[in-house]
């Protein structure tokens, strides 16, 4: 299954996409956040499995789920998230059979390629890209709610003991457990990562960048 073949596959209508959002929400309207979270997990899954285009495979997975929903009207045999995983496994198996699937391990690249990879601008934005990364991050933080802004900025203050103490103070201030602070910060960070990726113009990372900071 090549990237071009993925693009040719069935694309959900607006109605099918809305049905998918509703089904993923499981009765609690998330305003698209649930879709984005499942998509993020699928992208990470395909990426860890060395798929060359994890975003495309994640979209293909969700398109297939949407089509199945449209065809059957409902899917009740398992939870939406688990059904997405089962569908993703099929997409992965197809990609493995495809000649398009290439292992991206550094074992396969030359020393020159390795140096190019490890010095790639997207790895080290310390030169000309640094300003753009920071500008994008700044813009994305502005789109967060004030509460989320404060949480994410406070959460990443300091190192080691100071960091721990800062997070304990944050938990006390928000009247939640330190573990809940950590989970909430991780969700905000994931949201910011999607937003920054969209801001940097990498549409492979997030085709639906308009939903980034819901």
């Amino acid at each position: 299954m090549t990237r071009e073949e993925l693009k040719k596959h069935w694309v959900p209508t607006e109605g099918a996409f809305q049905a998918l959002l509703t089904w993923l929400d499981e009765g609690v309207d998330s305003g698209g956040a649930r879709y984005l979270e499942i998509r993020r997990r699928l992208v990470s899954y395909f990426d860890r499995r060395d798929c060359p285009y994890p975003d495309d495979y994640a979209d293909e997975t969700l398109n297939r789920v949407a089509r199945r929903l449209e065809e059957q009207g409902k899917i009740v045999e398992t939870s939406p998230a688990h059904f997405c995983y089962l569908t993703a496994k099929f997409v992965l198996l197809e990609s493995i059979r495809s000649a398009d699937h290439r292992q991206r391990s550094l074992d396969d690249v030359s020393g020159g390629d390795l140096r190019a990879l490890t010095s790639a601008p997207d790895l080290d934005p310390l030169a000309e890209d640094r300003e753009k990364h920071l500008s994008c991050l700044e813009g994305c933080i502005e789109k967060l709610t004030t509460a989320d802004q404060e949480l994410i900025l406070d959460y990443y203050q300091g190192e080691r003991r100071e960091k721990i103490e800062t997070r304990q103070r944050l938990a006390a201030r928000l009247q939640i457990t330190p573990n809940a602070v950590t989970i909430r910060a991780a969700r905000i960070r994931n949201k910011l990562e999607r937003c920054v990726a969209g801001c940097l113009g990498d549409d492979r990372k997030l085709p639906d960048s308009s939903h980034q900071t819901e």
Partner: peptide
């Protein structure tokens, strides 16, 4: 670091920690 998406996470972390 062999994955562009994961390298992007590293770049993001660098920006976040530079705040």
């Amino acid at each position: 670091l062999s994955s562009p998406a994961r390298r992007q996470k590293v770049a993001f972390a660098r920006a976040l920690l530079a705040l």
